[in-house]
Design a protein around this nucleic acid. Structure first.
Length: 504
RNA sequence: GACCGGGUAGCUCAGCUGGUAGAGCAGCGGACUUUUAAUCCGCAGGUCGUGGGUUCGAGCCCCACCCCGGUCACCA
């Protein structure tokens, strides 16, 4: 990045310090340091020993604040666990050692070693008998200033608030905001708990292709790319589904995958072009089993990560303790949309859609009208968690018909939380003949109605089904949205380390 | 994609009916051996998102474009 104006001056000044350090024989970019403790642990240990510490602690981290007072300097060092005040004295460090203190800048990585004590104002502090520079920061980090009010709450002044810069330079955002680091720790914990839950139930964590010759498993437009040696177009996966079910055919019986999928669609607060999905498939299970499993899995994650099953999201209390309310799709439309959709013909639906403000209602077919009505009238009302089940067959090309004869419904459910879909599951269609028909119906919609999101016919997948897919329950869950709920964020970009932005 | 709001110093922001750009923090120099938004004295720091236009004169008005955010649409 090139700078004009002042950043250039600051950077020059720091480079000048770098030169002076080298003159003093100090290597500004070290190779190694071995901290013996962390800020949080050192504070905890000191308090446990009720102040009788002669033990030296060795810490490493970034210089977070500097308060020089002539021959003495106070600083805060911050590591991944928190902050520790450090006290430098010219008489303990020596004139040369103290020269290094004078050349420190905010953001520098340092290592310090020394005994702990309590200052006159009561803050537990490490007196540095030794100071090592680990890496010089030549570009100023956008630190704000922190103040502690009477209750010990810290108030940030200034700071780094521009969201665009925060996402573009996430490294600076993370360096400066411990709460952002905490958020991604929560994300990691959630992932770990998902894996633990599934591993404990005999699921195998597998990896399937991201580059696919035929995409499928969802209705979405793909990203295309090109393989030179193969001399052909490939697609970035829009879902893991079809490959995972091939593995069930192969006898793995319980599989799951967590990874990014890619959809070439709009970007907004709840959509990023690449996002993380959990998909799992379990042989011999149906969608009732998937309901129980989904409730248990999400509850487990919420409980382990948050320590409670009731959490606050966007000001609302959400209770994840199973069982969750379960409501049939048409019933939901009746209850929330006050619409008896099953009794209405296409024209009736179209009229209702127009009234509900569904865009292009006049050009839409029955499928799209139903979908539009549900989104317009019902989704926002679903604070959740709630399970909506038995979807119209037109919306679900990969789900089995509802058993018992009603050919208009499928054994599919979705979980809604805060008005948004969190999970999607069904009794997987395992009849190869019907699967072919549904693919072909989709292909016709693609050709006749120009519906680009419709499925392609995946011949190899049908071949797999012909070898026999046992009855199987499958479920997909949006990881990013789960993390949004766990961290009370309303933008998906807050929970993705490097969200997609327009190139500068 | 449509509409609304925003883009000014490294960061956070102010900038009047158009008169040639300001504060705090950060930075630099100086004083200071238990401070903590350290303090005190001094200094420096700007393609005002980009490109056009109107005007004697544009950060401000007009047009186009770029980027971000919000709402809606599209979309799991």
């Amino acid at each position: 990045m090139t700078e004009t104006g002042e950043a250039q001056h600051v950077i020059k000044a720091r480079q000048e310090k770098l030169r002076r350090l080298q003159e003093l024989g100090i290597e500004p970019y070290a190779y190694h340091y071995e901290p013996t403790t962390s800020a949080a642990a050192a504070l905890r240990d000191y308090e446990a020993m009720s102040g009788e510490s002669a033990v030296k602690s060795r810490l490493a981290g970034r210089v977070r604040s500097l308060r020089p007072h002539g021959k003495t300097t106070f600083a805060h060092l911050e590591d991944r666990t928190g902050k520790m005040q450090v006290y430098f004295r010219q008489d303990t460090l020596g004139d040369e050692g103290y020269e290094l203190v004078k050349l420190l800048d905010l953001g520098d990585w340092i290592g310090v070693e020394g005994p702990m004590f309590q200052t006159r104002t009561g803050e537990i502090t490490l007196r540095a008998d030794d100071l090592q520079l680990l890496a010089k920061t030549v570009r100023p980090l956008p630190y704000g200033k922190e103040e502690k009010d009477e209750s010990g709450e810290s108030i940030e002044h200034g700071g780094f608030g521009d969201v665009e810069s925060r996402y573009r330079q996430r490294y600076a955002d993370l360096a400066v905001h411990s709460e952002v680091r905490d958020l991604f720790v929560v994300r990691t914990k959630a992932l770990r708990e998902i894996r633990r839950f599934l591993d404990d139930r005999g699921f195998l964590h597998v990896e399937t292709p991201i580059l696919q010759p035929v995409y499928g498993g969802a209705t979405a437009q793909p990203f295309t790319t090109f393989h030179r040696t193969l001399d052909r177009e490939l697609y970035l996966r829009i879902a893991d589904e079809l490959y995972l079910k091939r593995l069930i055919v192969g006898g793995l019986e319980r599989v799951y995958e967590i990874g990014q999928v890619f959809r070439n669609e709009g970007i907004d607060r709840t959509h990023n072009p690449e996002f993380s999905m959990l998909e799992l498939y379990q042989a011999y299970a149906d969608y009732h089993d998937m309901m129980d499993l989904t409730e248990a899995l999400v509850h487990h994650v919420v409980q382990e990560v948050k320590g409670t099953s009731v959490i606050t999201y966007e000001g609302k209390q959400l209770d994840f303790q199973p069982p969750w309310p379960r409501l049939a799709w048409y019933e939901a439309l009746e209850r929330h949309g006050r619409l008896s959709a099953a009794d209405l013909g296409v024209e009736g639906l179209r009229g209702a859609a127009r009234e509900a403000g569904v865009e292009d209602a006049d050009e839409k077919g029955k499928t799209a009208l139903l979908d539009g009505l549900f989104k317009a009238l019902v989704e926002d009302e679903l604070s959740g968690p709630i399970i909506i089940y038995d979807y119209p067959v037109e919306l679900s090309p990969l789900a089995k018909h509802k058993r018992g004869g009603d050919r208009t419904l499928t054994e599919r459910f979705e979980v809604f939380v805060a008005g948004r879909e969190l999970a999607n599951a069904f009794s997987e269609l395992n009849d190869p003949f019907e699967q072919r028909e549904r693919f072909e119906a989709q292909a016709r919609m693609r050709e006749e109605e120009g519906w680009e999101e419709a499925h392609q016919v995946d011949e190899d997948y049908i071949t797999a089904l012909e070898y026999g897919l046992p009855p199987t329950g499958g479920m997909g869950l949006g990881i990013d949205r789960l993390v949004m709920i766990l961290t009370d964020r309303s933008s998906i970009r807050e929970v993705i380390l490097f969200p997609t932005l327009r190139p500068e």
